[in-house]
Design a protein around this nucleic acid. Structure first.
Lengths: 188, 188
DNA sequence: GTGTTATGTTGACGATGACAACATAACAGA
DNA sequence: TCTGTTATGTTGTCATCGTCAACATAACAC
């Protein structure tokens, strides 16, 4: 048997990189490290990922797919909770996807993946409002759960969390506190 | 004249690092680069910052002070807009402060600075609700503007922005769309 | 004035991202 | 089946970076 050719190196690299990402964070994730973990030479990944950034882009794309799947399995307010749960379950992945570490402008695929993952949120508002209003409300909802995820990950809600009786309770209370104005009201 | 001792190297390093941060982003910010820009040898910063991370922490601390100042100059809904404006004006600084690049747990000063910057938000809800409810509502408000900032920076609201007639309009509309339930209502 | 301490410099090491040159396997056409 | 082309993996190399150690110089206390 020849071990010279690996068979499916891109997938193997992505897998090893994913494990490193979750275990050691983005800082500890190097191309060479991923290559080592996959059992190939330090330059093998370059045949499939032209630079480190493109490997990160691959990991992020996986992440958006995972997130989209998680959101498609529920609806309404449960989607918000699912969003936060995803962020807390895969913190480094989430930060890679949204932390600005990689320039999303350069990877249109990523923006599209994000839009796809986000689509269910927009749809959930569509029945109750005009398209324009639905979009605004959806943006607000996304912003809320997105910011909540980030701030929880950063530990800024440690105290609020314990006072609310746990993170899950806090998330529920926060989501319950917010209402979206879908009519034509105008705030003072 | 002796150029051997600099006079106020910590400040100079922070300044040069800040400029590099804004111009080239976090990735392009290295200790050696900052040292070069400050006109000192590659190891001079180590007398004042034990490692790169501590330099980043210093920059983040500055950022929290700036943010706190920006928030203290306004009240109510204008604070939300000011928060987003800060993020858009200093994107890399904002991402450094909240992007998970540096482990905030290790720098209690940073968390306290964040709490201080956040305090006005809590206070603005205090008159209208119980302490517990004020905290939840404040957490929601912070989450909303925080997530909105991140998603705007990531470019995920490009389309929504242009449809709303500009980023500022979008921000205003999003903030106007959200209501915080301060009573004892229970959502379905 | 001298010794101690704070501050800046020079030199080194291992790790990393990236490039170039090379080696090996897969595969297509004769 | 043989051969040439291409895809894939390896070895070697370089500049840069973070960090440590050894050294140099200035500031300051007695």
């Amino acid at each position: 048997m020849s071990t010279y050719h690996h068979g499916n190196l891109p997938k193997a690299i992505l897998a090893s990189a994913g494990k490193i990402l979750e275990k050691e964070g983005l800082t500890g994730l190097s191309l060479r490290h991923a290559a080592r973990r996959a059992g190939v030479s330090h330059n093998a990944p370059y045949r499939h990922f032209p630079h480190r950034e493109s490997l990160l882009a691959g990991l992020a794309a996986q992440g958006f797919a995972m997130l989209g799947e998680a959101l498609n399995n529920c609806s309404g307010k449960a989607m918000g909770a699912a969003y936060v749960r995803f962020a807390l379950r895969y913190p480094e992945r989430f930060r890679l996807m949204f932390g600005g570490s990689l320039p999303i402008e350069k990877y249109p695929v990523l923006r599209e993946a994000a839009q796809r993952a986000f689509q269910p949120v927009v749809d959930s508002f569509r029945p109750h409002a005009s398209p324009q209003q639905a979009q605004i409300a959806a943006a607000a909802a996304w912003s809320l759960v997105h910011g909540l995820s980030h701030l929880l990950l950063d530990g800024h809600f440690k105290q609020a969390s314990s006072e609310a009786g746990g993170t899950e309770q806090l998330v529920r209370q926060v989501l319950d506190t917010v209402r979206y104005v879908l009519g034509a009201q105008r705030s003072a």
